[in-house]
Design a protein around this nucleic acid. Structure first.
Lengths: 294, 294
DNA sequence: TCAGCTTACGCCGAGCGTAAATATG
DNA sequence: CATATTTACGCTCGGCGTAAGCTGA
């Protein structure tokens, strides 16, 4: 069982495609095919169905182990490479809707402490943010997600990463102005059959949120309007045009006309933003972390 | 960074020798040397001192990551190989002084439940027991160690293994009958300068116990009598002959004449025995586990 | 001096890419 | 029929063992 094979398994599982995985990893698609064949030969069982490409039960188990292994290898490499790295640049990977107000302020205080500090920030998906931090491509990840209050957002991954809660925000359902729903609040369970505008790159969908099985997630994804982008204004315009509803933190909903918001009555359901740091890099970024918590 | 290189690093770190690591892994010594050279080249720093072979600071960091990776790879392999494995044999790896009374009884109840059940038991060091369980060579590990009561014995390794406390036993200092120490109890701190018979394969030594730095451990190892064996009777005879003291659970001390025991006054210090199982194999061995806990 | 780690070197196998074959929807 | 994975094949590169070299106790 080789690391490159496990990397390919993780990539195929994530992308759902041999071809895309190969592109991500810088291989030809043929090579990825051989990697998976290697694993399936050593395990003696099918790890993935083809057409569509999906993990089998056994494949899921191995993929979980593989993800841990790959992450730890990346973290180890990053950690050892950072030992005598004196670059002062702070690089932050964040999900598009993560609450960046606090870190923006914290970075100001770093700038005033050391005048030459350079900074870089990039938005991406939560899993990409995690990978960027693990690989040393970024120092900090600021990710958000919908969770029951006080439950963990990301698996803090066996002591490799440490997470700090940056904030929790109220969730609202965004509806068009002319939507029949009245009142100023709503129970999510009443909306399972509603039409949704799903923006997987921007926020998790309702079926995922309610922990429905993958089949239901896939079904709802075809049944509703899917927006493959991270542009918040476009999403809200789609809602205003009546293509469906959206579930968002209230902070981001006042961008366009033609929509109104309903408070979510589901108790303890919030949009949490967390800061992720490699445990081995906590000292290096203590200034920012303490500024965030202060 | 390749798995075989990391395996070699772990083996060299454990054995303190390239040659021995190569034997353990089934390579030539030259190959292991190349593995370490690979790692040192990719990291760009020295991982091990030579003569004597010891981990550097950087090497320790990488070795810890490597141990996690290797363990998880082994566990994944074992887990997937066990999916359609219907052998009824129960294989237990245990440390020599682990309290086996309860598992012996638990295995009786398994035997009466299914008459054809085969069993195998082997004694080895705790780390070997862990490796045997991870590699699927054994199903259960029964390991003991001296700990403060209610603190964990083995790192339950990031969710890969689950541990069950089998029992905690009182610790005693074994002294020759004619030893000047009087009374029936003693404070361990009064014994740091005493002569000890150290049996690293049987029980951890006092300096290790008191969390002294490695230098102190090494120094004491040369200053006292070292017994490289697991034979309890021989150890007690060495104590009786005045070569030094030993720290043991009371249960095992009545084997020879010429020694007496002093209760350890250090509060909360016990010899704990734990059962380790792969999380993925808990269901398979539920009969034994429930019998142990009942 | 000698045990033990490193280096040189040649052979072999493994993995990659190209390209043709195959399968599925 | 189009798209995506598998298989065939050859080339290259990397890793292994053998054996010679080196070095510190």
């Amino acid at each position: 069982m080789e690391i490159r094979d496990l990397r390919s398994l993780v990539a195929v599982a994530r992308t759902g495609s041999f071809t895309q995985a190969a592109k991500d990893l810088g291989y030809t698609q043929s090579a990825v095919s051989q990697h998976i064949a290697n694993l399936e030969r050593t395990v003696g069982r099918t790890l993935l169905t083809r057409r569509p490409v999906r993990l089998t039960e056994v494949g899921s188990r191995l993929a979980e182990h593989a993800a841990h292994v790959v992450l730890r290898i990346d973290v180890a490499t990053t950690e050892l490479a950072a030992i005598d790295d004196e670059t002062a640049e702070v690089r932050v990977a964040m999900t598009p809707l993560a609450d960046s107000r606090h870190i923006a302020r914290a970075l100001r205080s770093v700038r005033s402490a050391s005048t030459g500090a350079r900074m870089r920030m990039v938005t991406c998906s939560a899993s990409v943010a995690l990978a960027r931090v693990a690989s040393g491509d970024c120092d900090l990840a600021l990710v958000d997600g919908i969770v029951a209050s006080s439950s963990p957002l990301v698996l803090a991954e066996a002591g490799l990463l440490r997470s700090f809660v940056v904030g929790e925000e109220e969730l609202v359902v965004v509806v068009p102005d002319d939507h029949p729903l009245r009142g100023d609040s709503i129970d999510l369970d009443a909306l399972t059959d509603a039409q949704w505008v799903i923006a997987p790159d921007l926020v998790c969908s309702l079926p995922e949120l309610l922990h429905l099985p993958p089949s239901a997630v896939a079904a709802s994804a075809t049944a509703t309007f899917t927006f493959d982008g991270t542009d918040l204004m476009t999403l809200l315009e789609l809602v205003a045009a009546g293509h469906g509803l959206a579930l968002l933190p209230r902070r981001v909903c006042s961008l366009v006309d033609g929509v109104r918001t309903l408070r979510v009555r589901r108790p303890n359901l919030v949009n949490r933003t967390e800061l992720l740091v490699l445990r081995s890099a906590i000292d290096r970024h203590r200034t920012i972390i303490t500024a965030l918590q202060g």
